[in-house]
Design a protein around this nucleic acid. Structure first.
Length: 669
DNA sequence: GAGAGTTGAATTTTT
DNA sequence: TTCAACTCTC
């Protein structure tokens, strides 16, 4: 194997048992994984189809695939599984849906769909105002990630509120079952259940996936831990790679302690720590080490680099957020025109999405091309969701959630009252809403006109369903045409342009379906294709196309796994980084890791910025410098171009509380 | 069912 | 401050 350091080499070659690789930022972890895959195939006699690499994001999976094909020159990697946890879960369920209490063609609800479903259950409840659907959804998600079912959740309830949450969880689950649908969390949870109750199925999968590699292991939740544990069985043929210092998703159920837990569950676990960093200059790395030393650690590691010391990282103090953006913009222009740095090599990283705004404005004013990552994903767009709902309903007539979304889109004069009666009737007869539309008994509850409208809708779906059996993609094209969806978009858009863009999105979706159908999904139905599309981030690809010569604006979370020669880490203030709520909830360590992730993205140069005052909800707030700046060795920072902090600066900082008082007294209008 | 007005909430968000 | 979601009215 070429160019591996001794630790990396050991990580690649160790195959005698379970292996944990603690890979610090920039220590070449992807390289270790891809080389290990090659090694397993070329030297250890594994067939590619017996190897499975799991990632969290599609992007990471794609990258891994690319790196692998570069490295192995296309040789014998066919049949290899490189997928996200969720895609693997979907495939497990799809193979034998009946073992998971599902029927073929089941629907996959995204987080937004799940939330609307909960909203339905919450509707009319007296406490609906006190409980947000989003909060309930999060709670349910937590339960699922912790492998807790509704009954168990009920047992654990401490008070009435918990009990209410648990009962909503039970309602929600009942709906999903009735709709023949699963949510994202079920893609992990349901397979673990399936494997518990059907050992033969587990054995079959264990035989199929004989060596498992898991990336970003610190981000696994309990359900994912359980799934990996089941699949790897007792011999523990796996390599997991992770970094406890880069765990920034605990708020979402990630359990970084899963790293340490492995040592308990697999006493023979071998641990290899990768500490050589190939990314950042020595000075940048020094700051990163100094910062993260303030966190408690289960595994001690200290990154080192034999790269150049590099330039001194700087701190720019700014008046307010407009000034901050202005200064960063002029720094960027300087880099571009005085130092010939490509815009694409520059990133501006911040804590919250809303911080992007002043930067967007200022960069635009200076004609600096930028690229904002995040934003509404392709599948969150209303028109795409509508089209997806049509596909889902055609694939799965029991998907009431999809039915409700589109029964009156475009308008068919089917209002809430009609739907309520339909729902009541369907519930009584234990049939889906779509089936209810054509049920003869319905006429007793609704006028002939309403019945006719529902009937017409059902007929529309039924005819396209038949068509879809022979020509799934063509049937969808025909459907979008028949309902004259483009006319509906034109009616509802503010401008012709917007309508066209939206229609374009729908066309893109159809094109993706077409591609899938010609590709890996030739023999599969619409349901499988639409589930896969839901899991894939089509937007990701568009982002990359748009990338290139642009300054990247993104949150610290979005920056994980990326690197840039020039990094601006902005908004280094108390209550922002660390964020206010993290101070309250005492999750400072995760905030520190977030700052650590930001620092370690930088290759050559790093610039922090902070403001003295900032607007919050329209009100001016006097800010304090982030404690994380205090945790960095002052000598290793250049404060406002003065190499290190001068006595004047210290004095000025001492005065900051005075300034704050003043600020409070004469807040600008 | 659409439009106006009110209210309340504003971290992060891999799938 | 801004924006989205919800309510109320026509």
């Amino acid at each position: 194997m070429s160019g591996l350091n001794p630790r990396q080499h050991a990580a690649v070659h160790y195959t005698n048992g379970p292996l944990l690789v603690l890979a610090g930022a920039g220590s070449g972890k992807t390289r270790v994984i891809t080389q290990k895959i090659t090694h397993l195939i070329a030297e250890r006699g594994f067939q590619p189809r017996h190897i499975c690499a799991l990632t969290f994001t599609n992007k990471a999976a794609r990258e891994m695939r690319e790196r692998l094909s570069q490295q192995s020159k296309g040789a014998q990697t066919r049949g290899l599984t490189i997928s996200t946890f969720h895609t693997l879960g979907l495939n497990i369920l799809r193979r034998t849906p009946e073992l998971a209490d599902l029927r073929r063609g089941f629907s996959l609800l995204d987080a937004q769909d799940a939330e609307s479903l909960i909203k339905e259950h919450l509707r009319g409840a007296p406490e609906a105002h006190a409980i947000g659907a989003a909060a309930v959804q999060q709670r349910i998600s937590r339960w699922k990630n912790d492998l807790i079912n509704p009954a168990h959740a009920m047992q654990l309830a401490q008070d009435d509120f918990d009990a209410r949450m648990a009962s909503l969880y039970a309602d929600y689950e009942r709906s999903l079952r009735a709709y023949n649908a699963v949510d994202f969390d079920d893609l992990i949870l349901a397979p673990t259940r399936l494997f518990q109750t059907h050992p033969a199925s587990l054995q079959a999968w264990q035989g199929r996936l004989r060596y498992l590699l898991v990336d970003e292991y610190q981000d696994t939740n309990n359900a994912q831990y359980a799934l990996v544990r089941q699949l790897t069985g007792t011999d523990g043929a796996f390599t997991v790679v992770g970094d406890d210092d880069q765990s920034i998703y605990a708020w979402r159920g990630a359990r970084p302690e899963n790293l340490a837990r492995l040592q308990v569950d697999y006493p023979s676990l071998k641990v290899i720590i990768l500490e050589q960093n190939y990314r950042s200059s020595a000075r940048i790395l020094g700051l990163a080490n100094a910062l993260i030393a303030n966190n408690r650690h289960v595994f001690e590691k200290r990154l080192w680099s034999d790269l150049e010391p590099g330039s001194l990282p700087r701190v720019l103090r700014c008046k307010d957020e407009a000034h901050e953006a202005e200064r960063v913009a002029s720094e960027i222009l300087h880099l571009k025109f005085a130092e010939n740095v490509s815009f694409g090599h520059i990133a501006v990283l911040f804590r919250g999405n809303y911080q992007a705004r002043p930067f967007e404005k200022t960069l635009r004013e200076h004609n600096i091309p930028y690229f904002l990552s995040g934003g509404t994903s392709f599948f969150a767009r209303a028109e795409v969701k509508d089209a997806m709902a049509y596909v889902r309903l055609i694939a799965n007539p029991e998907d009431d959630a999809a039915f409700l979304r589109i029964v009156n889109t475009p308008r068919r004069e089917i209002g809430p009252t009609t739907l309520e009666r339909l729902a009541e009737h369907s519930r009584e007869h234990a049939i889906s809403l779509l089936a209810g539309c054509t049920d003869p008994g319905l006429a007793a509850h609704l006028s002939a006109r309403q019945c006719a409208r529902l009937d017409a809708f059902a007929a529309l779906i039924a005819s396209h369903r038949r068509h879809s059996e022979t020509d799934p993609v063509g049937s969808m094209r025909a459907l979008i045409d028949t309902i004259d969806y483009s006319a509906w978009l034109r009616e509802n858009a503010s401008s012709q342009q917007v309508a066209e863009r939206r229609y374009e999105n729908v066309a893109d979706l159809l094109e993706w379906l077409g591609k899938l159908h010609k590709g890996d999904f030739q023999h599969q139905g619409l349901a499988d294709m639409v589930s896969h599309l839901t899991l894939m981030d089509v937007l990701d690809r568009q982002e990359e196309d748009a990338g290139g010569e642009r300054v990247h604006l993104m949150t610290l979370h979005a920056a994980k796994g990326l690197e840039f020669p020039q990094v601006f880490l902005v908004g280094m203030e108390e209550e922002l980084l660390p964020h206010r709520s993290s101070i309250e909830e005492d999750t400072i360590e995760e905030e520190r890791r977030l700052a650590y992730v930001g620092i370690t993205r930088a290759r050559e140069a790093l610039t922090f910025t902070l403001t003295r005052r900032r607007r919050r909800y329209g009100e001016w707030i006097v800010t304090e410098p982030s404690r994380f700046l205090d945790e960095l060795p002052a000598k290793q920072l250049d404060w406002d171009g003065e190499r290190s902090e001068t006595p004047e600066h210290r004095k000025a900082r001492g005065l900051s509380h005075l300034r704050m008082l003043k600020g409070l007294l004469n807040t600008p209008p």
